[in-house]
């Protein structure tokens, strides 16, 4: 009967082992005597993308997918992913989140403001929705135990605190699925996760001020011989030598002022001017940076 069906979500980044963790949880639930369905997505998403697993259990499970707002718990192996999937958690449910931050390269692309759109660590985002929260520093705990790859089982240990499954089932499932030879450290990680204290939240970092506009590229055409060195080095593809051998600015908006062109020009033909106005809207230190 679907009235008695419960659900949970696991979330993380491709490559973190979310699928293996899902199998452990599902197996523990089966051992505890439930009907279980588990859903995951493979393929493209595994290449560093956002990865999730749905698990549902009860006396009889129909849909393998957890409806929005109905999960008992969300367990996330990465901070930004915990935030992404929180709408799945039911009122009064719980979030277990590793405070590990994996900043994707795409978050390092605004070369005007130089700010990173990565959410700062703050338990309030969940508490304000009325959810129980448990933030763990799983990597630190696993590293201390001797294998950072056991971090996922630290998170599962913390998750176990919110689920009514006997420890023997958890431990049997972990032994079943972790790579041979790593059973001990993974079981230790699981146990450490059950007892883990609330993680120390890193301080938000200070963000750069940013610029109001692009730098201006100034070419002295009477000195330039069109040798092409500058256009080949420009990281922003701002310059090109045209069919007539004349250096032109093809992407003025993108100049960040790195001055590689200036430094490499054998003829001193390029000058870069910073944007006239300082940034009008300073970028604040609201977001946690990518401290590693």
């Amino acid at each position: 009967m679907s009235e008695t069906t419960s659900g949970l979500l696991l979330a993380g980044v491709g490559g973190q082992g979310v699928l293996l963790a899902s199998m452990i949880v599902a197996d523990a639930l089966v051992r505890a005597g439930h009907d279980v369905k588990q859903s995951e997505v493979h393929g493209m998403a595994q290449r560093g993308g956002s990865v999730f697993g749905h698990i549902r259990w009860g006396s009889r499970v129909d849909s393998p997918l957890v409806p929005l707002g109905s999960a008992e718990v969300l367990a996330a192996f990465e901070w930004a992913e915990a935030i992404r999937w929180v709408p799945y958690v039911r009122d009064g449910g719980a979030v277990v989140a590793d405070i590990r931050m994996i900043v994707p390269p795409g978050a390092c692309s605004d070369r005007r403001s130089w700010s990173m759109p990565y959410p700062g660590i703050d338990a309030e985002v969940f508490a304000s929705r009325g959810l129980k929260t448990r933030l763990v520093d799983a990597s630190a705990i696993a590293t201390e135990l001797g294998n950072v790859r056991a971090a996922n089982n630290v998170v599962l240990g913390s998750l176990a605190a919110f689920l009514d499954i006997d420890v023997v089932h958890w431990e049997a499932a972990i032994e079943q699925f972790v790579p041979r030879g790593t059973e001990e450290v993974n079981l230790a990680a699981f146990r450490a996760g059950r007892e883990a204290s609330e993680a120390q939240i890193p301080l938000p970092t200070v963000e750069p001020e940013g610029f109001s506009g692009p730098h201006e590229i100034d070419i002295r055409h009477d000195w330039c011989k069109g040798c092409d060195i500058c256009s080949r080095i420009c990281p922003e593809y701002c310059l090109a030598v045209n069919g007539d051998g004349v250096l032109t600015v093809t992407n003025a908006e993108a100049c960040t002022g790195c001055r590689l062109c200036v430094l490499l020009c054998p003829d001193f033909a390029i000058t870069i001017h910073p944007p006239q106005e300082p940034a009008t809207v300073p970028v604040h230190a609201v977001q946690g940076g990518a401290s590693r």
Binding site: V13, L68, I83, R84, V86, P119
Partner: peptide, 19 residues
């Protein structure tokens, strides 16, 4: 109609990428 669950707070976009 199903209750609209509060949307997620802003978070980083994370498309698939090369390793």
């Amino acid at each position: 109609a199903p209750p609209e669950s509060d949307p997620a707070p802003p978070t980083v976009v994370r498309p698939a990428i090369m390793c």
